[in-house]
Computed example of a mutant assay.
Amino acid sequence: MSELSPKEIGHRLKAFRLGSKYSTEEIAAKIGISRAALYRYEKGDPPKLETLEAIAELFGVSLPSLMGVGVEYISSAISFFERMRQNEAESEQLSVMFGLVSYLLTTDDFDKYLEISIKEGLPEELQGDPDTMRRIADVLAVLEERKKVYKQRKPSMVNLASATNLEQFMRSGFVGTFDLPEDVLNERRAAARHEVEHVITLLEEQPIGVQIGILVDSVPSTHFQIFRQSDRSTLCLSPYKLCHFPNVRLGVGMLTSAPEALDLHQQMVTELWGRALKGRRAADHLRKMIEDCK
């Protein structure tokens, strides 16, 4: 893996800061620098090695992970989605394998129901907890920024989605818990159906740069995305779930630019894309699925 630029290290500093439990002022005070200096490092000014070591220790990550040497392991959803945002902001092409379509292609209503289902799925002791609410708001803000950047830049995208997962989504509805009144469940199922109808629209209209394949057989349980930039490619493996029974609290995400990992996952994308339904055939399959779920 090639040596990273100070700008890339700055990206990682920002992502880990956002995912930490400390404010900017607390981080600066604990490592003995000014808040302005911390922001300069995030923008690409190279920090001293001892400063990086202190930051890594404070964030509870290894120095190689902080510097992006080898594999980045990220246990915070905020940090993980921020790293995705940073990579998407510089990517020319994305290959996406998630259970549903990429979050970047979802409707604005998706964000509304995602927030509701995340909060209603919290354990009782975290319901209304200020720190938990703040972290959920931070996750949603990063996700919203990801979608905003995608709409501005429009990198090309190859997106593989599972027909089985889309059907499960429609049958359960956009929910975070099982014990909801029937009228609420009907509303959430309608919201899920609206998202699948949006996928049908994308399949039929085929927007420039967006290719969607619907898989009707078994699919990998691991969610991953490949970011292709002019000078490098990066693979991310995600433990998080953004649909019915969402999870943005627990898991360890991974990012790597290791050639073997990239090649193996690209081979998987190529193989699955060849088997996927596309265009009108995919749209007809989903339309029949909607009728069967009513």
Rank of each mutant, 00 (worst) to 15 (best):
L94H: 10
E182I: 13
E260I: 14
K241V: 09
G279Y: 02
L180R: 04
R275K: 13
L126D: 06
R135Q: 09
N165M: 10
A261R: 06
L185V: 11
G274T: 12
E25F: 13
H244T: 11
L18D: 01
L215W: 01
R135I: 05
M268L: 13
D231V: 13
D183S: 15
S76T: 00
P155S: 07
T222S: 12
H223D: 08
K147R: 11
P246F: 01
Y103E: 14
A77L: 05
P64A: 05
S172L: 15
V158G: 05
A56W: 03
M157D: 04
Y73A: 14
K30F: 00
M170C: 07
S34D: 06
E53D: 14
M67D: 07
E92W: 14
S230K: 15
K14L: 10
A282I: 01
N165D: 10
K30S: 00
P6S: 03
I74F: 04
A282V: 00
L66I: 02
K112D: 11
S20A: 01
A163Q: 03
P155C: 02
G121V: 09
C243L: 09
R193C: 10
V210R: 07
P246V: 08
E120S: 06
V210H: 10
P46D: 00
I208E: 15
T107P: 01
S156G: 09
S238C: 11
T132V: 13
P220L: 04
D183F: 12
D108L: 15
V149Y: 04
Y73D: 09
E57D: 12
Y113Q: 01
A29H: 09
P155W: 04
R153P: 06
M67S: 09
P6E: 05
R12M: 10
E120T: 06
D284L: 12
L18G: 06
F98N: 11
L202K: 02
A192L: 08
F224A: 07
L237I: 15
R189N: 02
G99Q: 06
T107G: 04
S221L: 14
L180K: 07
V269K: 03
P181K: 05
H194F: 15
S91G: 11
T107I: 02
V149W: 03
L264N: 15
S20D: 00
Y240P: 05
Y240E: 04
R189A: 04
R12N: 11
G70M: 05
V101Q: 00
R171I: 02
S23T: 14
